[in-house]
Nucleic acid binder design. Structure first.
Length: 371
DNA sequence: GAGGCGTGGTC
DNA sequence: TGACCAAGCCT
């Protein structure tokens, strides 16, 4: 890691901010410095690309224009607004944070990063982003862009996959950040990280800060940032039960904790819970599905059949699901004890569902048309 | 502090 | 396909 003197720091600030004034992106959440707007955008942008976020942000502001609207929203509507964005605890934590602000802070945002970190769902990065952008506090906002940009500029060799590395970057950036325009400085770093200083195939030769990019000047840019690899997703097998009662689909809500919390899917049975031998036949599978389904949902399945075709696969960060599809019907009288909903096609649209559920429906329709 | 927690895009 | 990446936080 190299050090910059005061003159070089000043020159870097000027170069970076001049470029940002000239070429910074016009994004919907940059039209003002409302902390609510900054906050919503920053939460959406966690692990998510700008192009994906823009339409979600516009709709979110339409549905929940104020902190109070968000605090008062039904969770189903909230999750619907987030449907397809992933990491769904983000939006549930946002509502908890909105209520926290209203109840404990008189509806007023605290204005320092140190205080913002106390709020639910706001960690070191988001606190720095809100404090600098909305309130002008000269604090770093260390995200993936900052790791990428500053590891190259300063040849920082610390492993960015390790939590304690963040403090290394915070200390370095704290010395370099503009005291006059900290919010613009942090956003300029993000724009730089999304344009010239990308993860793959950076274009440092044309970067406005190439003269400050030590790794580039030394021809070792490809080495940065240093990051250890994550383990591969573990395989998990399910059977999806597409069950109807008259013209209604049987849908169940996932538990309030863990993966896809509180989202809706068709009943999913873990194959490990079916107690099947490795060489089990389709008939044995369907029998096990029928008995397990009855035990789990107090419903009797009839006309149980395997939907032909390949299983649906869906890869999460840490799990790879393989889902076989089973079609069945249930008797209306049984629904009294069903812990879920029997919904029409139209009602289905109001339920927040994960992407993997959409894949299951799409596959089912593809397999059953013209039959 | 390692692992849980989504999705879309690129190579 | 699989591997990796993209404005992280929580437990």
């Amino acid at each position: 890691m190299i050090e910059w003197d005061a003159a070089k720091i000043k020159a870097f600030q000027t170069t970076l901010l001049d470029w940002y004034d000239r070429a910074g992106r016009d994004l919907p959440w940059r039209h003002d410095q409302e902390p609510y707007h900054v906050w919503v955008s920053e939460i959406m942008l966690q692990q998510t690309q700008v192009q994906t976020v823009i339409p979600y942000y516009e709709r979110f502001m339409d549905w929940f224009p104020t902190l109070k609207a968000l605090a008062d929203a039904p969770e189903e509507r909230l999750l619907k607004a987030w449907e397809g964005l992933g990491y769904y605890s983000r939006v549930r934590n946002m509502q908890r944070c909105a209520r926290q602000l209203i109840n404990d802070y008189d509806g007023q945002w605290p204005q320092t990063a140190a205080e913002l970190t106390e709020l639910i769902g706001i960690g070191p990065y988001t606190a720095g982003a809100i404090a600098s952008i909305a309130f002008g506090e000269a604090v770093p906002a260390v995200d993936g862009n900052a790791y990428r940009v500053f590891s190259r500029l300063l040849e920082i060799d610390a492993d960015v996959a390790k939590p304690q590395t963040r403090t290394v970057f915070e200390r370095a950036i704290s010395r370099i950040i503009s005291r006059e325009r900290p919010g613009d400085f942090n956003q300029a770093i993000m724009d730089l990280g999304a344009s010239y200083m990308t993860a793959r195939q950076p274009d440092s030769a044309h970067s406005p800060v190439k003269a400050f990019n030590q790794a580039y000047l030394d021809g070792v840019e490809a080495q940065y940032p240093v990051k250890t690899k994550k383990p591969r997703p573990v395989p998990v097998a399910y059977v999806a039960v597409l069950a109807t009662m008259a013209d209604r689909w049987l849908m169940v809500q996932r538990p309030s904790t863990g993966m896809l919390a509180n989202l809706w899917t068709v009943p999913l049975l873990a194959v490990t819970d079916l107690d099947l031998a490795d060489d089990a036949t389709d008939a044995e599978l369907l029998h096990a599905v029928t008995t397990t389904f009855t035990k789990d949902y107090q419903l009797t399945l009839t006309d149980v059949q395997l939907v032909s075709g390949r299983p649906v696969t869906h890869t999460f960060t840490h799990q790879k699901w393989t889902i076989r599809l089973v079609r069945a019907t249930v008797q209306p009288a049984d629904l009294a004890y069903f812990d879920g909903r029997a919904v029409t096609e139209k009602q289905l649209a109001a339920l927040p569902m994960p992407k993997v559920q959409e894949k299951v429906f799409v596959r089912y329709q593809a397999e059953t048309k013209d039959r």
